[in-house]
Design a protein around this nucleic acid. Structure first.
Lengths: 94, 94
DNA sequence: TAAAGTAGTTTATAAAATAAACCAAAATAT
DNA sequence: ATATTTTGGTTTATTTTATAAACTACTTTA
């Protein structure tokens, strides 16, 4: 009955990141930091975990002369997020 | 936009416990252990946390000669669960 | 009456989240 | 020109959380 929830996604900050990337498809570090109201350190760590899981792609480039990290969700990430939402429903009676 | 999720509820096992108690209203330790597929130790710890938060009531009695711990959700618990579900929706686009 | 099972709690360990400290380069003020 | 602050992060340390292992007390069964 109760499905096992993907632990990579079931973390408040990572869930927030995934949620944002599902909507916007592409977002830079600064935007994610503002929207999630997280610290840079925490965000950096969680982005790395999502990247290692293959759920997001992280690209490093420059915006003018300043470094810029851009993130986007992968196909695997979309599927994992959708499965997570489905599994979660078993807990929420939806 | 993204709401802060109640950390007492946002834990897989505690969410499962709350979800079960919302439905059945009353459940003993054994039932919760089976349904959640958790270890007794982990279950014991998480029940105590929910009790300390005022979200559940834990009553110790006997079933025949064997000790029996019975749990039920409180009004506070119901409200917290409902708020959690609402807040969660901001992440899931529902 | 010894061994095994039940119903848990307590304590120790592992994993995760978060915060603090740090780094390199750019922009700004002196 | 050069010191100071700001930006955009990463790395490391600390705290918190989850989980597992060990233990307790009593009961049932062999």
């Amino acid at each position: 009955m109760l499905k096992k929830l993907d632990p990579i996604i079931h973390s408040e900050l990572r869930l927030a990141i995934m949620s944002l990337l599902i909507s916007v498809n592409r977002a830079d570090f600064k935007y994610l930091k503002e929207e999630t109201e997280s610290t840079a350190g925490n965000l950096s760590v969680q982005l790395t975990k999502l990247e290692e899981a293959g759920y997001i792609k992280v690209e490093k480039g420059f915006k003018g002369k300043m470094p810029q990290t851009t993130c986007s969700i992968t196909k695997m990430g979309i599927e994992a997020f959708e499965k997570y939402v489905e599994d979660l429903k078993s807990y929420l009676k939806m």
